[in-house]
């Protein structure tokens, strides 16, 4: 049983586990909204715009996590400003912001000698290097997400299922959308630290996709996705501990493996039913 307890003896790994558990739950749960609303592109865009905030924070000598939060807030504000114009959808406004922020971020990296070494951390995550601030941020985001889902979860679900109906019922759907985008963006900030920019979308969509195949109703799907995200975080870290695979990559590979197993299981059940 040593393999089970071994990683927990290391302070670095204990922090990494804490980060992975919280990040897995938050990204898993909020990823369900991303999946059913078809907002995969939003996650991807947020990931890319965050780079700019991270680089600016590094240049100013501030905490990288706060830079990411600042960039996230800017992204949400700018995209909703653009989307307020009926001619632009959220996707289109994100499509404008994404290359602009990413391009500016990469340009700044090129101009900053000291940053290049940390570029890999930003792209693929550095879960073994999480700081107290990162953990506090992850916990705060988890609390905000939980409180929001408790307070306005059913309204967010209604908007996700039947937007015109929510509007007809008198809900301010634009504000609910903004709330959802803000939550997804915060989840992306947390996941950025753990699995990095490139793998972030997989963390948002993977557990949600598996959960969709396993459940028939909304809240069980959200709970299942949160559980799968957490499980993937923990299993990924065990794998990373016992091999040379990086933490972020290991977690995302576990997410992908889960999906393949769930999909294969569903297919097998379907085939068995037909065979009978």
């Amino acid at each position: 049983m040593e393999w089970l307890t071994d990683p927990w003896t290391s302070e670095i790994m204990r922090r990494a586990f804490a980060e992975a558990i919280v990040m897995g739950a938050v990204a898993g749960a909020l990823g369900c909204f991303v999946l059913v609303r078809g907002l995969g592109f939003l996650g991807e865009s947020v990931a890319h715009t965050l780079i700019l905030g991270v680089v600016i924070a590094f240049l100013l000598g501030g905490p990288v996590a706060l830079g990411a939060v600042g960039a996230a807030a800017g992204t949400v504000a700018l995209s909703s400003l653009l989307a307020a114009d009926r001619r632009f959808s959220v996707d289109v406004s994100m499509g404008v912001l994404l290359p602009s922020c990413f391009g500016l971020g990469v340009t700044l990296i090129a101009l900053t000698d000291g940053y290049r070494a940390r570029l890999e951390d930003t792209l693929f995550g550095a879960i073994l290097g999480v700081t107290d601030l990162d953990l506090a941020l992850a916990a705060a985001v988890a609390l905000v997400a939980a409180a929001t889902l408790l307070l306005a979860g059913k309204e967010l679900a209604l908007v996700s299922f039947d937007r015109p109906m929510a509007q007809a019922m008198g809900y301010r759907v634009g504000l609910l959308d903004l709330l959802l985008f803000a939550l997804v963006t915060l989840a992306a900030v947390v996941a950025l630290r753990a699995v990095g920019n490139v793998l972030l979308t997989a963390m948002l969509l993977g557990p949600a996709l598996s959960a969709r195949l396993l459940t028939r109703t909304w809240w069980p799907m959200v709970a299942t996705a949160a559980a799968l995200g957490t499980l993937a975080g923990v299993l990924g870290l065990y794998w990373s501990w016992s091999s040379a695979v990086g933490g972020g990559a290991a977690i995302v590979l576990v997410v992908a493996t889960m999906f393949v197993l769930v999909a294969a299981g569903r297919a097998a059940v379907a085939v068995t039913r037909v065979a009978r």
Binding site: G38, R212, T217, W218
Partner: peptide, 10 residues
């Protein structure tokens, strides 16, 4: 036509 089919609900 306005409902989201991807949304799991009974």
């Amino acid at each position: 036509s306005h409902t989201q089919d991807a949304f799991p609900i009974d």
